[in-house]
């Protein structure tokens, strides 16, 4: 769907490139995650790909044709969800949606989506009377009101309560299952685990690693058992901790000795989470 080749970008007033040569591709029908610490250039990358920022170096192909060759027709095919509020605040939700909907040839059933996201009953309220979470949900409806082929989402679940976040994530997955392609930027690893088919980790304006979440876990992951223990006669002295490789634990004498001689307080098996991988990839590379 997209091929991004060696793209660099510098904001007009800056001295340094914000994007320092990124290469990746997004396949049709996948949710592609763009991850990385705050300020690394995720939103900038998205803005380049939705043609808000021009003047990048390198090449971006959409359906085999350079992005610069597309005019406003491009926007008939894509949907963009920003991380900031983006509505006419003195119009109602319904008026906002209706206004934007009329600009497109394809028009989705927005009522159904608003109902699902629980903002249908508030559709005649002015948007400036909406709560933060309601605005975010409205943002999503606005982003998909033209049944886009590609959906760009910038931190779509930040500021949502868990149940609304769940509904939204289900809707994103359904969108993908019907053939839609998604570029999702986020630093919430939960979202990545649940949604993304592939992820790219951005570090310092570059891409450090691209893979599926499963492969990343296999590659960087290790399984451990963490034990919190204390001496039997410890009284109220603080407890101690030890950590053992799960793979070799059945041959680990030290572990058995601990089990026999100490008072075990808690014991957990622990898998490397994407959080750990995030910190490992983004942290290590940064200081390298």
């Amino acid at each position: 769907m997209f091929q991004v080749k060696d793209v660099t970008y510098r904001y007009p007033k800056n001295r340094e490139d914000t994007i320092k040569g990124i290469t990746f591709d997004i396949r049709q029908g996948e949710i592609f995650g763009l991850l990385g610490p705050s300020g690394v250039g995720k939103s900038t990358t998205q803005k380049i790909m939705v043609k808000l920022l021009s003047g990048y170096q390198g090449e971006i192909y959409y359906r085999g044709k350079e992005l610069k060759g597309y005019d406003k027709e491009y926007y008939q095919e894509i949907g963009v969800g920003f991380e900031v509020p983006v509505h006419f605040s003195k119009l109602t939700a319904e008026e906002n949606i209706n206004f934007f909907r009329k600009l497109y040839r394809n028009q989705a059933n927005t009522d159904a989506m608003m109902k699902r996201l629980g903002i249908f009953d508030a559709r005649n309220k002015k948007v400036d009377q909406f709560s933060k979470g309601m605005k975010i949900r409205l943002n999503f409806v606005r982003a998909v009101l033209n049944n886009p082929a590609v959906l760009f989402l910038d931190e779509p679940t930040i500021g949502l309560d868990p149940s609304n976040a769940r509904i939204l994530k289900t809707m994103i997955k359904e969108y993908r299952d019907y053939g839609g392609t998604v570029l999702l930027s986020t630093h919430l690893m939960n979202d990545v685990d649940e949604l993304c088919d592939r992820v790219a980790f951005m570090v310092d304006g570059q891409i450090a690693e691209i893979d599926t979440p499963q492969n990343l876990k296999l590659k960087h992951g290790e399984k451990k058992v963490e034990v919190e223990y204390n001496e039997h006669d410890a009284g109220d002295r603080p407890s101690k901790r030890a950590s053992f490789e799960l793979e070799t634990i059945n041959r680990n004498e030290e572990f058995f000795k601990l089990m026999r001689t100490k008072k075990i307080i808690t014991m957990h098996s622990k898998e490397t989470t994407l959080d750990d991988i995030f910190i490992k990839i983004t942290g290590v590379e940064k200081h390298a």
């Binding site: 963009v80 920003f82 900031v84 509020p85 983006v86 509505h87 605040s89 934007f100 600009l103």
Partner: peptide, 10 residues
């Protein structure tokens, strides 16, 4: 922020 939105419409 509605200007942002207008900029990504046709």
């Amino acid at each position: 922020g509605s200007l942002h939105t207008l900029l990504v419409t046709p």
